[in-house]
Design a protein around this nucleic acid. Structure first.
Lengths: 332, 332
DNA sequence: CTGAAAGCGCTAACAC
DNA sequence: GTGTTAGCGCTTTCAG
């Protein structure tokens, strides 16, 4: 690839001015069909591609949005991402997908980088930043949607899965089945998801006037491996537990593996419930009882909310996304 | 967010010229420590972010690379993506991750969009385009790495998993275990992966002088659902089959589900081998015998090869990535 | 050590 | 219908 073909090359070749080419390119009025076609022919012949860089400099629009997730290899996020991407593409936006790998430093870096790229909008999922840092970072974006992350008095639209209710359903289910000593693998400390799940966990217990031990609560990184390790610890510390509520399905799968290595059988010795209902949930043995979240639809909603903001329809709302319990083998 | 802070604002506020700010920003020589610090202070105070748009217009470098995959929710690609992202971030590049959803039209659109964004380089995984279209699209990128996709006389570096060998190993394993009637779910027609796997399949048979029926070959979209549907068809058409070689682990899981609905038990009635060894492979029951590919390392290699190209070290090579058989329960 | 001028490729606003 | 001028925010080149 030598020098890139520019609009000037096209104009010269077609014997018209820059403006005319620009008009042809952007389907603007005031240009004869004949010239339009001639220009089109030259564009194809020369293999010209308009520079969105140059265009963005003048229009202040880049036609891109940023999407930040903690872990793209978690099927929950890759499905949410699909929903957002579809909406974006349908509205002629490209998507910068950025992985933070659960690392707040990386999250900051990624947000700065997106700000420098002047993306038109941002969807930030499950931020791991504290309020102050988050607020500071968001300042750089003119359109923002936060998914599963709560922030007061912000210009961002917020979309939340109803994870408090979800966790309450899960634990209530276990209690109804006669479980009394229920541990919880509560995910990353200080995350919105963790806080709300703990609330749901406590609420379920409160409803039945049964008490739980604070030490049954165990935070953990939301991956299969981390969960497996920590589940072993938790079960050794608390052999009295008969059930585990898990932050998400990956964590539940890790717990399943831990049980298998410990010779503890699921669900007869210990029941396990997950969260999210990713495809994996119904593929493992025993299949996971879990909380179903419509991940793709959630992504669509986030995308559409962002599009609405980009169109100038400021909404500044908090939307709750419903969830429900799916009963399978791991906690029948 | 009102008007964005520009370099001119910083310069005015710091009482220096644009140039001085620019130098401070880019850690250039010839600027006193005092002014550098003063400028730094103003930058922070004003919350200034350099516009990579404006910078890119003059430098011809955007600091971004494009990454195109057919399906980001396939753990194979999300791991490869992680490897590439790590390399990119370590070299101060951002990554545009684009999903084509196995759709050639979408792939073209995505490549055009990346070209307009003037990304500095491209990693294209498992392209579903025909040679001509592909060649045309690649013209727009100055640095290119193709993963699992072969193209003669191109400027692109090429990285291939040794899938021919992989499939040969898989089928040889089945033959050695006494299987004679082995079907193959061969993935997307005309893809590099499919062609090479079919070659490996044929080679394994050729080595043993046993023959296979062309009708045992069944193409399919590489997803669990598509595979499940097509496996049912294949097994009803060919009840004589005692083993299935699958394009990848998702396809193998689909086959597993199909067998389960048909009341066919694995591995006693039919053996199944997958490909890729994604985490899911060892989590399903029965655990999948499969071909292990170091996905993250593959991503790293792709990323590093691209970085080398971006540094001007043109290599124009074809690199083969080794694979090996992992024996588990689905085909012991 | 610091600054002024020019220009990257494009579009907005106004001519003709 | 089409062209001209100016300028987006930055870096490069060349002067001080």
């Amino acid at each position: 690839m030598s020098r890139r073909v520019t609009m000037a090359d096209v104009a010269r070749e077609a014997g018209v001015s820059l403006m005319t080419v620009s008009r042809a390119l952007n389907d603007k009025e005031g240009i004869s069909e004949a010239t339009r076609e001639r220009i089109q022919e030259v564009i194809v012949r020369l293999g010209y591609r308009p520079s969105s860089i140059a265009r963005g400099l003048v229009t202040k629009r880049t036609g891109t949005i940023g999407l930040v997730v903690p872990d793209n290899s978690n099927p929950f996020f890759s499905e949410v991402a699909r929903g957002i991407e579809h909406t974006a593409y349908a509205n002629s936006y490209s998507v910068f997908l950025c992985n933070t790998e659960e690392d707040p430093q990386r999250e900051k870096a990624v947000l700065h980088s997106l700000a420098e790229k002047y993306v038109d909008g941002l969807v930030l999922c499950s931020s791991r930043l504290n309020e102050d840092d988050l607020r500071l970072c968001l300042r750089d974006f003119s359109a923002q949607v936060l998914v599963n992350c709560l922030l007061d008095s912000t210009t961002a639209d917020i979309i939340l899965t109803h994870s408090e209710e979800g966790q309450r359903l899960a634990v209530a289910h276990l209690l109804k089945r006669g479980h009394r000593r229920i541990g919880i693998l509560a995910g990353p400390e200080r995350s919105y998801g963790s806080r709300t799940r703990l609330k749901g966990y406590a609420d379920a217990f409160a409803e039945t006037k049964i008490a739980y031990e604070p030490d049954w609560i165990q935070h953990c990184s939301p991956t299969v491996d981390a969960s497996q390790r920590i589940t072993v610890e938790l079960l050794q510390r608390h052999p009295e537990l008969t059930a585990l509520a898990c932050y998400n399905d990956l964590v539940a799968v890790g717990a399943l593996k831990a049980c298998s290595t410990l010779g503890v059988s699921v669900p007869s010795d210990i029941a396990i419930v997950g969260f999210d209902d990713i495809p994996l949930a119904s593929l493992v043995t025993p299949a996971l009882t879990t909380i179903h979240v419509q991940r793709y639809a959630l992504g669509r909603m986030a995308g559409e909310t962002l599009m609405r903001q980009l169109r100038g329809e400021k909404t500044r709302s908090v939307q709750m996304f419903p969830v429900h319990l799916v009963t399978r083998e791991s906690a029948p």
